[in-house]
Design a protein around this nucleic acid. Structure first.
Lengths: 237, 237
DNA sequence: GTCGAATATCGAACGACGTTCTATAAGATA
DNA sequence: TATCTTATAGAACGTCGTTCGATATTCGAC
């Protein structure tokens, strides 16, 4: 979460969103590149090639790579925000908060690059701010101080983004290429850990098998539920 | 956490650590650059300049930038690990776990770049693994399943690294340069948020003042304590 | 004491990247 | 028509990670 840095001389600068057919095209292209081959694949040259234009053109819409990333992130967050808004409302705010976090997590797992840029600049990332607001509104239904609400939402967002980022950066190409499947990948890991001296590494040694068969989502849900259990305690206390 | 990718043909490849005066020199230089001017400042040319050698020489010690970063991270983690080991042991494992998390957090705040590379490759990052083990050993003292222990440590590490990373990437140069102090920086933020329509953004609007004066460490401690409260529930239940 | 491998250094060169700049075309306005 | 704004295109610049071949140094084997 960070304020504005620079702004492209570009199109919808001030007022409400004009037509600007091409800004969407640029963002769609950027998102497509990110989806297809990850963060490293989004270069101005590659994007220009895909759009059939020159690199210079992109700079008319966007001040630089930072803004491109921020806007692409926000662009991709639009549908996520919509699905959060469509979530049913129960009478338990913490359950609703949980459902939102899970939805957000799933979206980030689908697009791991989201984690790196999410909430970096709420000035450009309108949807990020709305998303933050939506999570926050659940805490308004709880008996908490403002500060506690603030901290609760920070914690939840932190767990979602943190865990998802961890997962996203893990698979080292071999797995993405399909040359090595996830099971073997994790298994190699576990094997290394199991070889450690149990006297020096009682915990890691014990954890090895658990790790070999672990599900990233379970890991996320466990962390989330720990924090939410704490939050419930805080709200009821 | 990830297994090995490539390895430099380099020096202490297999066996126990030889003298290898220069590997330490390289890592010290890398850490110094990272400390002085952040992640962007660590380039092979800058490092070679500081060491008074050629770029090519560095590649004898390290297979590439990834490994350089991994090793530099682990190098910097050495003293942190030592201070974790020196922490007093109480009769409450969760309190001890908390103290460790706080110590780790403080170290990362001091060196924000640690967050980006911590635990990326336990094969090269010996200290990371030991650190993970140390946290895990506290959970061995709790009445939990292996899986719960695994998840608990993941959650704690996730909160530490996630929160610290968030903080580290925030200040947008102006603050680092001292041109704008933190208070004004946060204040600008809060002002933007306060200008939002309270009907559309009840939460963000309410949070604005809280945010203006917030302390990053409080934010971290709040998230940590929520999760630890949940953990205590789990262990006692 | 010599020789050849293993160890270690160095910097030019390569290709890819973000960014800047200038030239230019098309559309609106007068 | 002339002029300003909008929009495009790509050559050029400097920096980066990385590769490579030319060297120097060390050192055990003979």
């Amino acid at each position: 979460m960070t304020p504005p840095r620079t702004r492209a001389a570009g199109p919808p600068a001030g007022g409400r969103r004009r037509a600007s057919h091409s800004m969407e095209t640029v963002l769609d292209g950027a998102v497509a590149l990110l989806d297809e081959s990850g963060e490293g694949a989004l270069t101005f040259r590659a994007l220009a090639g895909r759009l059939g234009t020159g690199v210079g053109s992109i700079y008319w819409y966007v001040a630089g790579k930072e803004e491109l990333l921020d806007r692409a992130t926000d662009h991709a967050l639009g549908p996520v925000l919509a699905s959060l808004e469509d979530l049913p409302v129960s009478d338990d705010p913490i359950d609703d908060l949980r459902a939102m976090a899970v939805t957000l997590f799933d979206a980030i797992v689908d697009r791991p690059w989201l984690a790196s840029y999410f909430m970096r600049n709420t000035d450009v990332q309108d949807n990020s701010l709305r998303l933050y607001e939506l999570l926050g509104q659940q805490t308004l239904r709880l008996d908490l101080t403002t500060r506690q609400r603030f901290h609760a939402v920070s914690a939840v967002v932190g767990i979602v983004v943190g865990t998802a980022a961890d997962i996203g950066q893990d698979p080292p190409q071999e797995v993405l290429d399909g040359a090595v499947d996830r099971e073997e990948f994790l298994g190699r890991f576990a094997a290394t850990w199991r070889r450690l001296d149990p006297a020096d590494f009682p915990f890691v040694h014990q954890i090895a098998d658990e790790f070999a068969g672990h599900d990233d989502k379970d890991q996320f849900l466990a962390a989330l539920d720990l924090a939410l259990a704490g939050l419930r305690l805080q709200a009821d206390g």
